[in-house]
């Protein structure tokens, strides 16, 4: 299986049409367009420094999160997922975002939220993929007394 991601890099840079993105604490079993502005964003209120809203009557509390520096948020769209798992898949860049609204179900967003913790992968990946010079390795070995 191979996946092709079609990127029109000119488009990403040029039309920074920022998408109105929301991370919801629910699994929606459907795909398609959603009336986010009219049915959702119109009801966002600010309360005690946090945002409030509701999804199908369930109370939400949220905050705006920035996508970590040096990273671009990208929405990919696939016209049709091939039935054959081996077939090549093509995903197109639909738009980009630099911030999004993170929502919890009836819980004030905090550092202990699973999603916030998962975002640490960004720092982890940076550290793990840093290039190390030979001298640094030798230094480290010496310091450990070997």
């Amino acid at each position: 299986m191979s996946i092709t991601i079609e990127v029109n890099s000119g488009k990403i840079k040029k039309d920074r049409q920022q998408l109105d993105m929301h991370f919801l604490p629910a699994n929606i079993k459907g795909n398609g367009e959603a009336n986010v502005e009219q049915y959702f964003s119109a009801y966002t209120r600010k309360e005690n420094g946090f945002l409030t809203n509701a999804l199908r009557g369930y109370p939400l509390q949220g905050e705006i999160k920035k996508v970590p520096a040096n990273i671009t948020g990208v929405v990919l769209q696939e016209t049709r997922k091939p039935l054959d798992e081996e077939a090549e898949r093509i995903l197109r860049v639909k738009g980009t975002f630099e911030e999004f609204t993170y929502w919890n179900y009836d819980k004030i967003p905090s550092a202990s939220d699973g999603y916030t913790q998962a975002l640490q992968i960004v720092q982890l990946a940076d550290v793990l993929s840093e290039t190390i010079s030979e001298e640094e390795v030798l230094k480290e070995l010496k310091a450990n007394g070997k």
Binding site: P25, A26, N27, I28, K29, G30, G32, A34, N35, Y39, F40, Y43, A54, L55, R56, G57, Y58, N104, Y105
Partner: peptide
């Protein structure tokens, strides 16, 4: 996706049943 306009009380079983039939399934935390 969003079910009903917010004139509707989502917590009424009448509303919940109507959504169960016709809107996308949704699972919350």
């Amino acid at each position: 996706v969003f079910g009903f306009p917010r004139l509707v009380r989502f917590s009424w079983s009448t509303a919940e049943n109507a959504l169960a039939d016709k809107a996308y399934d949704m699972e919350f935390d």
